[in-house]
Structures are given as structure tokens and as C-alpha cells.
Amino acid sequence: MGSGTKIGRVRGLGSARQGGKHWISGMESSVASLLLSVWLVVSLLLLPNFDQATLAQWLGQTSVAVPMILTIGVFFWHTQIGLTVLIEDYVHDEGLKLGTLMLLKLYALAGTVFGVFAVAKIVFAGAGA
């Protein structure tokens, strides 16, 4: 490793040997997001109307709540993978990058927990009047 230019110092070291897994996860989560998006759009279009009572009754069913919880989890999984790439590409300061990636993980986790809780509340406690 020389002490020359930045590119000179990394030349010949090869890849970081960890990008492939992230790329595969991106594809997996995108296919899952695609399937669940189709499910969400189709089942919404099959509803007679979009009143709160109809939606609450619809979400309260196990056959809807389970894929909806899955959808929230998968969307945030894909969100985290996708935004990680954006942050790594566009945030150049190392400290800021680390902090932003931490915030992203927190956002994805908190969002998932909030969404799962919102659906579980309707299933177990019923929607408010």
C-alpha cells in the first residue's frame, strides 16, 4: 500500500468482499415488495368502499392482517437496503455517514414496530369507534 493518491492506495486490493450479499438482499426484498404490492393493490380494489368501518373490518381478518404485517416488514427491509446504498453513495463524510446509517436503521425498525402494532391493535383490540 503506497502513500500516494487515494486511488493509488486502494488499487490492487480487490473488492471489499461484502457487496454481493447486500445486492442479493436488495433483489430478494424487491421481489417480495413487488408481490406484496400486487396483493395490496388488488385487495384494496376488491373492497366495496374505503370507509373506516370497511377498512377496519377488512384489516381485522387474519388473512389480511398477516400479509399486511409482512408487507410493512418487507417494505421497511427494502427501504433500509435501498437507502443504505444512497447514503453510502452520496454522504462522503465518514462520521456523518455512520450517523445517517444508524438513523436509517432506527427509522426502519421503529417504522416496522409501529406498523405491526397498528395492525395488531385492530386485530386484537378492535378499531376505535
Binding site: 377496519a56 427501504t79 435501498g82 406498523g115 397498528a118 385492530i122 378499531a127 376505535g128
Partner: peptide, 29 residues
């Protein structure tokens, strides 16, 4: 990339708001 960012932020927040509003009852909806 831009649309992915919009979906990740505004899109997901509206989705969560929508779910919470359904659970919150007719008034919050």
C-alpha cells in the same frame, strides 16, 4: 433512486398514518 427515496420516506409515513388512522376509529380516519 429519487422515487425510492420518496417511497421510503413520504410513502412509508403515509402508509403508517393510514393504518394508525384505521385503528384510531372513524374520527381519526
Amino acid at each position: 433512486r429519487v422515487t425510492g427515496f420518496i417511497l421510503s420516506t413520504a410513502g412509508m409515513l403515509v402508509l403508517l398514518w393510514w393504518l394508525a388512522a384505521i385503528g384510531g376509529g372513524a374520527e381519526s380516519y
